[in-house]
Structure formats: C-alpha cells, structure tokens
Amino acid sequence: MFEAQMAQAALLKQIIESIRELITEATFEVSGTGMMLQAMDSSHVSLVALNLRSDGFQLFRADRPFSMGMNLNHMAKMLKCAGKDDTLTMRADEANDLVTFLFESPGNERLAEFELKLMDITSENLGIPDAEYSATVSMPSAEFQRIVKDLGSIGDTVEITVTKDDVRFAASGDIGNATIKCRQLLDTEKPEDRTLIEMVEPVNLTFALRYLINFSKATSLAPSVTIKLSTEMPVVVEYKLSDIGYVRFYLAPKIED
C-alpha cells in the first residue's frame, strides 16, 4: 500500500509539466524515503532525476518499495483537473494497476477522484555518483531561462565558460554571434537574486541549447537554479523544491570527434 498527501496538488502538476516534453513515460520508485524518478529522454542525450522526500509530504506511507510506471502526459491530463489550492492524495496498491489521485478543495466541499492506469516500463536505471564539480554557478532561474532562450534564437549550441570572475554563455549562428556574461553578484536583498560562482578550475563546455531551454521549463518551481560543470562531463541543472526535494537535469556535452 502506498499513500502520500501533498498540501498543493499544483506542485506535482508543475513538476510533471516541466518534464513531460523531455520524458513521456517514466517509473516512479516509491519507498520509505520518498518518491524518485529517473529517466532519459528518447534520444538518450539528457536525463531527468526527480526526488521527493517522504518528510516533505503531509502524510507518507509506503509499506514496501513499489514501482509505478506512468505516462506523464496522461498524468498531466489528470493533474490539470486539480483546483488551484486543492490538496493531493495519491494512493496505490500492488493488487491493481492503478494509481488514484484525490483532489480535495480547501473547504473539503469538493472531492475529485481520478484513477490513472499504471504501465510496465522497461528502463535503464543509472547510478549517478556524487561527483565534485570544477565549477558551480547559482543564479536566478528566470535569468538562466532568459539566457538560454535568447541564445536559442541565435544558435543551436551554447558554449559555457566559467572563470573566477564570471560565467559566459556564447552562441553562434548564421545571423551572427552573441555572448552573455554574468558576474558574481552577492550583495542582493533576496538570496535568490544572487549569482554565485564557485570555481575549483576554469571550465569550457558546449551544450545543445534546445535541451537547456527544455530544462528551463522548471523555472517556476524554484527562484534559483544551480548549474554544475566539469570538463567532458554532463552538466547538472538543478531546481530545488523547497522543503521536499529537487528536479535535476543532466545533459551530455558536445565532444569534439
């Protein structure tokens, strides 16, 4: 038996909206520690890792580890039916191939029950080591989204260069070139407005912009985004979900043949 209650159904809706274009089907792994999902996009260039800790839920019960394969577009269809301030309760048991989403209005006057068919998904589960990165940049998530969208209108790839003074995003295309340089900015009123650059050694990597633009769909989930880079390693783009977990996107760099 699995049962979990979230104060805001809108949070899960937003999470699924931010990843469903990248991965259409995925398996949620449920255990005593929480709900996890890890899936590659269909071209196996990027990977999404979602972690929702059990202590971030209002109620969380998982008698034993349990896998729930879901079509994320179908899940999104159901989550869209939740009211803005509805709570969400998820229920599933191994006896039937369904997960139930219960949407309850704040005054408890409306209770909606949606049952989603679960599916068997065969997927590779990858072990991602906790690596030390050469450079870690934290910046407002809206700023990162603006940069990748702006550069996406110039070129297909972005070259990211981190030095101790700044982080540069550069793109080139048929119409010309663009470089956006962000300096470290620590003296801000709100911590989420900071741009923080932690550099062990300088890095310079190139990535496909369309994936980074896709990752930035998660902007509404967190005011700040953390970008971790190491030479010839996948970039990690992390959105922290306050009090419950994170969504991390991994993207392999372009490597010279």
Binding site: H44, V45, L47, E124, G127, P129, T157, Y250, K254
Partner: peptide
C-alpha cells in the same frame, strides 16, 4: 563537428 554522446555512457548501469 562536435559529437553528442549518449548520457548513459557517463554513468554506471545498475
């Protein structure tokens, strides 16, 4: 031109 490697090649299979 630059190649695009498979993301799985960077991680270990479980």
């Amino acid at each position: 031109s630059a190649g695009q490697p498979n993301i799985a090649s960077f991680f270990t299979k479980r």
